[in-house]
Design a protein around this nucleic acid. Sequence first.
DNA 1: ACCTGTGAAGATTTTCACAGCA
DNA 2: TGCTGTGAAAATCTTCACAGGT
Lengths: 263, 263
Amino acid sequence: MTLPPHAGPGSDPGIGGAVAPGGSPLRSVPEASVVRLALYLRVLGELAEQGTETVSSDELAGASGVNPAKLRKDLSYIGSYGIRGVGYEVAPLLRHLEHSLGLTQRQAVALVGVGNLGHALAGYAGFAGNGFPVVALFDIDPDLVGVGINGILIDHVDELRRVCAERGVTIGMIATPGQAAQGVCDQLVACGVRCILNFAPAVLQVPDDVDVRKVDLAVELQVLAFHVARRHLAAAEGPLNVVAQAAAAAINGAGRRVTGGTS
Amino acid sequence: MTLPPHAGPGSDPGIGGAVAPGGSPLRSVPEASVVRLALYLRVLGELAEQGTETVSSDELAGASGVNPAKLRKDLSYIGSYGIRGVGYEVAPLLRHLEHSLGLTQRQAVALVGVGNLGHALAGYAGFAGNGFPVVALFDIDPDLVGVGINGILIDHVDELRRVCAERGVTIGMIATPGQAAQGVCDQLVACGVRCILNFAPAVLQVPDDVDVRKVDLAVELQVLAFHVARRHLAAAEGPLNVVAQAAAAAINGAGRRVTGGTS
DNA sequence: ACCTGTGAAGATTTTCACAGCA
DNA sequence: TGCTGTGAAAATCTTCACAGGT
């Protein structure tokens, strides 16, 4: 069985606009769009803080590093309604995005592996503040069990099943060494966790109905290294390229490009 | 850069963009493929450790969670030569991948922002071990300046330009708060850094010739939250789905149980 | 007999471009 | 006039399926 980074259970055709009880259309949203929606949400939050009340798709797209048409299409997936000739009202759009991303419901997060990286994740303020409280910590090291971080005590991995059930964990984060990751993943899945964020350098095999997203630091650096190398090759190879690049660089000295996401 | 009217954000498309105008290909490798190449490299490393000498595309693809045809196509971008009827020799393929990803040359990394997350990144063993030594640390907090982590002293951000030049930094990592990220990014670019890995919750604006990759923890969690919510909606809507999901869960509950280790 | 490398088909995502409304 | 929402075209990525080695 294969697990593309985001093998959603929704290989499901379901083109038809199935309608949920509430009446909102449950249309399939491309994974890439979901990622961008989360991005727009943050940018909108910043705009709201500044007191901005409306934005055009051009403005919001610019601030998000995205093509305006793409932004409008992304919003269309969640049935957003802007005002023609004006743009979008920041506050309502923000609420709409939160709702569409399922942020109205609090998601309890469990973190397995409180080593170097795990410790930082456990203490990361960005989580709790955004509706993702870390409610459980696990490690296999007896010296760590019982230690508290941000008011949460570390439990032994053997307690995973019980603790996750008790605390209603819906999202699992894995920050163990690579060899341990699959085992931990299996346990989380057995506990009913269906969404996993994996920081361990390992490819996780999971059932079809489980979503895994991966953050792989080594891979990120290697991808950048590839670009460094390619840049050297390109420069060494074509004088024409060098000229073109220099020209482009000069032109861009003033105007800037926007670069968005990854993962 | 080249022709495309718009340098797309997101997973920066025109990677091989440097297709020589009148010259040789310098074949462009799709960004998605580059990411997977890095993944194959890791899996191959594991195979090599186990003493495996050859793998078929099926096996390697399975272990990487990827479709075999896709794997072969990915490898074809870097002109890999397997042996028909047999597969790939692990060691040569591993070397080939390392070379193609530019890992033969050591990349010096600078990390800006030694807070909660930054501290963990500075101590992350996976970097140095993979040819990405962190050679410089920066922060704006006077209390941190002078502190050493893993033998590297933290410098003040004001020293960024000098230190990066002295130590030949080629890759920058940003782990500052969101508001500080753009400023830091500008400084890195001014120092000649052309590849940046951004952990800060901010969209960075950079010139065309700079590659940015982003790791955004809040976005990752929100994407997972979206899937949790969608799953609930789907379950509430389609009774057939519920049955199928329950069955899948049951089957997997009986699945292997592995006692995991943790750091 | 088996497995790679790849053209071509298929699927998905991005972008264009314009109708339609405020 | 200005900007959204969206059908359709373009670009990109994935998968199939098979020719061609070993």
